[in-house]
Write a protein that binds this DNA or RNA. Structure first.
Length: 434
RNA sequence: GCGAUCGUAGCUCAGUUGGUUAGAGCGCCGGUUUGUGGUACCGGAGGUCGGGGGUUCAAGACCCCUCGAUCGCCCCA
């Protein structure tokens, strides 16, 4: 017989199994659940948008020359001949929906979503081809207060996830269109003057995206980048005042932040506020949550001039920083004492489950070895199903932990099964020394 | 796209300067013991040493190619 070759998982995709020691699936779910809870505190509506869009949605909004558009998109032609792209980010799709679904009537709109995104990149720590993000946007609000609210939201999320300690909020302004253009021109002039001192990569950036030279990691670029002009001197009064309102709002809300005048963001659509929550605990991937204001994007997509701000956070990256969430220990194992009691045990477990009690049941195996397996599975107690004795008693309830909550677990179980049918209730004493 | 490191049972790994039928722990399956406090013991299944080619009397160990993984560059969450 020919050997069947198992198809390999696609590079950069992940399979996450729950119940393992790493508990990555649980941490992932915990991040999402926390986001969903905190987002309600701030009044963000859940929004669902497609996983794929017409390619133009992303090409037009992210900027044709960005890496994401020029080499990282999963783009294909569907059977009708249309060019389709798997979403590499949320903002473009949400902006498109805002226009095409007539959501302007709800403006200012606060929405949140989460789900898979796709980018054709070389996978490494904290970076995947299919990855997942949390996303929050405020559309139709020009006030700096919107930026502040989004940042306070992000800050609270990270605090509630317990990862705020090693993560800092870095903040910058890219100014309005006028400021940004003036600054950009000054930067280009500066870099052109020092062209010979730049790395090869940065010479390329000079042509494609000169702002990115500012945060280059190449030591050869640092002197030139560090001596480059800050945007501050080029800010219009409006832009300066806007940024001041954002920072004073953060201070008022008690959110710690650092100015990083070298912080720029990759996508073309950012204006005014740009920010990243960064950490040094994720290898080369420092950014855990990032975003900014993107006034102008919706207009670019053919909609009305609409101010907007938003951020996205990598769920995998957050999950890697988060502690393993503690699962409630409220599971009872329902174990047949003998093989011929397997059906009976199944019936008992079914009754308990219908009563809302979490049960662990064996999938075959030697009954003698079941208690050990159940213990490994993390149950709180073992319920043995026996042949009835002369008085009709057919259950033994044995705790496998010292936790007094076992008594609480016994109550509903005995209520369902009949207390008089229990021959034994034992609660183990403290561990004896090994 | 580029670079570095790595690739032995389901998992974590040993395998001496290349030398006979490739090992351990855990897990899995079966059995005995224990009226059940991660019990003890016995037995068992499971490996084309990622794949292909080469050097050699002889390669899991050396060389080349290839595939894959990890980490880094680029870029980004």
């Amino acid at each position: 017989m020919a050997k069947i070759e198992t198809p390999r998982p696609v590079r950069g995709t992940q399979d996450m199994l729950g119940g393992t020691p790493e508990a990555f699936a649980e941490r992932f779910a915990h991040v999402v659940a926390t986001f969903d809870r905190v987002r309600r505190l701030y009044g963000f509506q859940r929004v669902e948008v497609p996983v794929f869009e017409s390619t133009a949605v992303f090409a037009r909004s992210l900027g044709e020359s960005t890496d994401v558009v020029s080499k990282e998109m999963y783009t294909f032609e569907d059977r009708g001949g249309d060019s389709i792209t798997l979403r590499p980010e949320f903002t473009a799709g949400i902006s498109r929906a805002y226009i095409t679904e007539g959501w302007q009537q709800y403006a200012p709109l606060k929405v949140a979503t989460h789900g898979p995104l796709f980018r054709y990149e070389r996978p490494q720590k904290g970076r995947f081809r299919q990855f997942h993000q949390l996303d929050a946007e405020i559309i139709g609000a020009a006030e700096p207060g919107a930026d502040v609210e989004l940042l306070v939201f992000a800050d609270q999320l990270l605090k509630e996830l317990g990862i705020n300690d090693g993560v800092t909020l870095t903040l910058n302004t890219l100014g309005d269109a006028e400021s940004r253009e003036a600054w950009r021109a000054a930067l280009i002039a500066h870099f052109e003057a020092h062209r010979g001192d730049l790395s090869e990569d940065s010479v390329d950036r000079l042509a494609k995206n000169p702002l990115r030279i500012l945060d280059s990691k190449d030591p050869r670029d640092r002197p030139v980048a560090d001596s480059a002009p800050d945007i501050d001197a080029y800010l219009t009064d409006e832009a300066r005042s806007f940024f001041e309102k954002v920072t004073s709002g953060l201070d008022a809300a008690g959110v710690a932040w650092e100015r990083n005048a070298r912080l720029v963001r990759g996508l073309d659509y950012y204006r005014h506020t740009a920010f990243e929550f960064v950490t040094d605990r994720l290898g080369a991937q420092g950014t855990v949550l990032g975003g900014g204001r993107y006034d102008g994007l919706i207009e670019n997509l053919g909609g009305p001039a609409t101010p907007a701000v938003g951020w996205a956070a990598g769920i995998e990256r957050l999950a890697m920083l988060v502690d393993v969430p503690t699962a409630p220990r409220d599971i009872v194992a329902v174990l047949p004492d003998k093989r011929d009691l397997e059906d009976e045990a199944l019936a008992v477990a079914a009754r308990l489950r219908r009563a809302g009690i979490r049960c662990w049941t064996p999938l075959g195996g030697n009954p003698k070895k079941l208690p050990a397996k159940a213990r490994q599975a993390g149950v709180e107690a073992n319920l043995f199903v026996l042949h009835p004795d002369s008085e009709g008693r057919c259950f033994n309830f044995i705790s496998v932990s010292d936790d007094p909550s076992v008594h609480e677990l016994f109550k509903p179980i005995s209520a369902v099964l009949g207390e008089d049918r229990f021959g034994n209730f034992s609660h183990f004493k403290n561990n004896k020394a090994d």
